[in-house]
Structure formats: structure tokens, C-alpha cells
Amino acid sequence: MHKTLVTLGALIAGLTLAFGSASAATAHSELEGSVPAQGSTVSTVTELVLTFGEAVVPDYSTVVLANSAGISVELGAPTYDTTATVMTIPITSGALPNGDYIAGFRIVSVDGHPISGEIDYTVAGSDVPAFVVPTPSDSATEAATQGPVVTDGTTETVTLTRANDGPNVLVVVGTIFAALVALGLVTVVLLVAIRRNRAKATE
């Protein structure tokens, strides 16, 4: 009986320790910082850099970027430093035009804990021409949205043009673009199709 009590006591002590350490371990892999930083105003943004407190599992990472009008910006595949705590995500089209942006991220730390959040920042002083969303009557838009631009069944397509711009393209939907050029339908207006869901770029 005495032995049972001692064992029980040890068990309770063990459980207490386990719970104590569990609460300490719930820190997991929080976002420790980012470039651009939350709430910041910057002039040149060509990539996003996210720094986490713990290593992340690359397979599970998703990062998306949109401007305040809800237009998605295509991102390249993330790369990681050797500790897998610093994640760099290139912006496919290069530097961003002026505007307010929202980056959404979801990662899983090595202990399996999923973390998600968003980073809001502003680009000001950029010399990159702004995004313009064409009107629905724009023939180029119609052509683009009829094209095979939906990639994985979960994406939404947004077609963009840039004002005051020559052949400067965020994302060209190759087959459609070629077809339009060939038909002589497009002179200064260029097609830009941007996948709204960025899951693809992160795998």
C-alpha cells in the first residue's frame, strides 16, 4: 500500500512536470519578424522574408500576397536558410507598385504546430506602374478569363493591366498572350493573369 502511494505520488509529480513543460512549450514557432515588417511603409519590395522562432516544415508552408483591392500577386517558391527558420519568398514580377498589401502566411513548425497570420504593409515611393483592373468590357479581359488560366481547381483568376506601360508583364498566360498578339488585338494593353491562391508556389 505504501509503495502504491509512493508510485501514485511520483505519477502525480510526473504529470505536474509534464503539464508545466507543456505550457512552456506552447511558444512553438511564432513569427519573430518579417521584411517588410508589419505596419511598415517601404519603397522597394521584391521579396518577402519571414523569420520564425523554430524551424518550419517546408512541405506545409503557404504564403499569399494581395493588395488592398484584393488582387493577388504571384509569388515564387519559398527558400529557407539552413536552420529552416528564415523563409524567403520572391515576388515573381519583381518590385511592387505603390499600394497597401496584405501577406497571409501559414506554416507548420517541426513539432507539427500550425501557425498562420498576416502582415500588412504599404509600398510608397515605388516607380513601378500601378496595377489597373480592366473593365469587364475589355476584350482582352474576356479573352483572358476564357483561357486556360485556372491551374488547380482552387484558384481564382484575376486579370490585370498596367497603365502607362509597354510590354511589362506580371504574369503572362503564354498561350493566350501569343494568340492575342498574333491576332493583333493587343497593342499597348497587356494581359496579366495572377493566381489568387498561392499554394502552388510553395510546394
Binding site: 506545409y60 497571409g104 499554394a199
Partner: peptide, 10 residues
């Protein structure tokens, strides 16, 4: 609101 799938890919 951050543009992420409510039901993640994983």
C-alpha cells in the same frame, strides 16, 4: 481575411 484557404492544403 489573409487570403489563406480556410481548409488548408495539408
Amino acid at each position: 481575411s489573409a487570403g489563406l484557404s480556410v481548409i488548408p492544403d495539408f
